[in-house]
């Protein structure tokens, strides 16, 4: 009656190591079997990138110099070489970025020979479009203003980003093609159903979509892919000694933005960053991993989610990410 169950049991008892030897293998089946989950994820992402290129009039790829967007660039190479990328790279510079990451960003764009557009929050602040309470305040939440301005300036109708659904609860329901209204806002109740791999890319002028080709990747997948593709990442992803202070449950890197306060003490310890965002709120984790392999090993056993460990601003409330997304943050 339950054929599936019988199949499974038979397979386990008759052939504990593999089911492959028990049947004649045609060549296509052999090739298919060599494809692992990274190949499946890669092929899905390439397919998505090509759909954007074919159907959107004026897309851009958000490149921050962080690991997820580094993976996106490799996927774009796989999708479009030997041709050029059918879109420019866009970086929203908060002015609080790690200098190593900015240096890396510029070098990588140059290596690829692709166009890099940088729009900076400093300009938005100077124009009075962004008003901060203090110079040292986290700027993550305000990136949306500069991003939306850049979208309007260049009339981008699609922005490709490296967000993943495993990062945060509010992202678990995010579509791969995520629709934003004229105000750049995300309405969780008004998302288009997404079926099979048929994507609805249509927007009216002024509206746009955010596209997340690596939605289905986890942090571990990203690192495995970086290892497999031998991708260079900024040094601060690897363990290094740094002055940090313990604040709340996290570590904060000492910099011109984060200074030691009364009752706090800076420590010089081995840390690495799991994300590389705003310097004022991106927390490193204690680590001795100095290679991608060691990072993978650490990630595989890590007990703390990426954002929980590394973003002070997400911890404010259970729903803080969701609120920021509604405002146009990607």
């Amino acid at each position: 009656m339950s054929t599936l169950l019988n199949d499974v049991q038979e397979f386990i008892t008759s052939n504990p190591s593999s089911v492959m030897k028990s049947e004649p293998i045609v060549p296509e089946r052999r090739i298919a079997r060599q494809l692992g989950h990274l190949d499946a994820l890669e092929s899905e992402a390439i397919h998505i990138l090509r759909e954007v290129a074919a159907e959107c009039t004026n897309p851009a790829l958000l490149f921050s110099g962080g690991k997820d967007s580094i993976v996106l660039l490799r996927l774009a190479e796989k999708a479009f070489r030997p041709g050029r990328f059918p879109f420019p790279l866009l970086h929203i510079d908060t002015g609080h970025n790690f200098p190593e990451v900015i240096e890396f960003r510029d070098r990588r764009a140059q290596q690829l020979g692709e166009r890099l557009i940088v729009r900076s929050m400093e300009d938005s602040i100077r124009q009075g479009r962004v008003v901060l309470r203090s110079e040292n305040q986290s700027r993550n939440a305000f990136q949306s203003v500069t991003l939306l301005d850049a979208i309007a300036e260049f009339r981008f109708d699609a922005c490709i980003g490296g967000a993943r659904r495993d990062e945060e609860k509010a992202r678990a329901k995010e579509r791969i093609f995520s629709f934003r209204d004229e105000f750049g806002q995300w309405d969780p109740k008004n998302q288009r159903p997404e079926l099979w791999d048929i994507y609805n890319t249509r927007v009216h002028p002024g509206e746009n979509i955010r596209v997340f080709p690596i939605s289905n990747w986890t942090e571990l997948d990203v690192w495995e892919y970086i290892a497999r593709e031998e991708l260079e990442v900024p040094h601060i992803y690897f363990a290094h000694t740094r002055d940090v202070i313990r604040r709340g449950t996290g570590l904060l890197p000492v910099s011109h933005l984060v200074q030691v306060q009364e009752g706090e003490q800076a420590e010089n310890i081995m840390v690495r960053f799991r994300t590389v965002g705003d310097m004022s709120c991106t927390c490193p984790v204690e680590s001795t991993a100095v290679s991608v392999g060691e990072i993978i090993a650490e990630t595989a056993i890590t007990r703390i989610t990426e954002r929980g460990a590394t973003r002070m601003d997400d911890q404010t409330s259970d729903a803080s990410m969701e609120l920021r997304k509604k405002e146009g943050y990607f």
């Binding site: 495993d166 509010a170 329901k173 998302q191 986890t218 571990l220 969701e322």
Partner: peptide, 22 residues
Amino acid sequence: TDGLQAEREQGITIDVAYRYFA
């Protein structure tokens, strides 16, 4: 597996959410 704020308030899940494990 609870997702978005609105749903948490209503106490029901109203949309497809994706989870990952290995």
